[in-house]
Amino acid sequence: GATAVSEWTEYKTADGKTLYYNNRTLESTWEKPQELK
């Protein structure tokens, strides 16, 4: 079967924080998503 690919993209901001963006739900979060833990 196909492996579930994470929908989350990780961005590094200018101040060194990490922003997570979900390509499916168009949601963005500063918290690390469950799927990435």
Rank of each mutant, 00 (worst) to 15 (best):
A4E: 13
E7N: 06
L26R: 11
A14I: 11
E10W: 13
W8I: 01
W8T: 00
V5N: 13
S28M: 15
Y20L: 00
K37L: 15
A4Y: 09
K32M: 12
A4V: 14
A14E: 10
A14L: 10
E31C: 14
R24K: 13
L36N: 06
W8A: 00
E10T: 10
E35D: 11
E10L: 09
Y20T: 00
A14M: 09
S6A: 12
W8D: 00
K17A: 05
P33A: 02
L36Y: 12
N23A: 08
E35H: 07
A2K: 10
T13G: 07
K12S: 06
A14F: 06
Y11W: 09
E27K: 07
G16M: 02
N23S: 11
N22S: 02
K17D: 04
R24I: 15
A4L: 13
K12P: 04
Q34G: 10
L19S: 03
Q34I: 13
T13N: 07
D15W: 05
K12A: 07
L19A: 07
T25I: 02
A14N: 08
T3P: 12
T29W: 04
E7Q: 06
E27W: 02
K12Q: 09
D15L: 05
K37I: 14
T9H: 07
W30H: 11
N23R: 11
K37A: 12
T18M: 04
E27S: 04
E7H: 07
R24Y: 11
K32I: 11
E31L: 08
T18N: 03
G1D: 12
K32Q: 08
L19K: 09
T18G: 01
K32L: 09
G16L: 01
N22R: 01
T9L: 09
P33Q: 02
L26F: 15
Y11T: 07
Q34Y: 11
E27Q: 10
E31F: 06
T25W: 02
E7W: 07
N23F: 09
T18W: 05
A14R: 09
A2M: 14
E7Y: 08
K37F: 13
T29M: 05
A2F: 13
N22V: 01
S6D: 10
G16Q: 03
A2S: 14
Q34D: 15
G1H: 14
K12N: 06
G1T: 14
T9W: 06
A4F: 12
S6K: 08
S6G: 11
D15I: 03
Y21W: 10
T9V: 14
L36K: 06
W30M: 10
T29V: 10
T25A: 01
V5G: 12
G1S: 13
E27R: 04
L26K: 15
E31V: 11
W8Q: 00
W8E: 00
L36S: 06
E35R: 03
N23T: 14
G16Y: 01
P33V: 02
E10D: 02
K37Q: 14
S28G: 04
Y21H: 06
P33F: 02
T18V: 12
L36Q: 06
T3W: 10
T3V: 14
N23Q: 10
T29S: 10
W30T: 10
R24P: 02
W30G: 05
S28N: 04
T18H: 03
V5H: 12
T29H: 06
K17Q: 09
P33I: 02
P33S: 01
E10Y: 07
T9F: 09
L36F: 11
Y20E: 00
G16V: 00
A4S: 13
T25Q: 01
G1L: 14
P33D: 01
E35Y: 06
G1M: 13
K12C: 12
G16A: 02
Y11G: 03
A2E: 12
N22L: 02
T29R: 10
E27I: 07
T3L: 11
K32E: 07
T9Y: 09
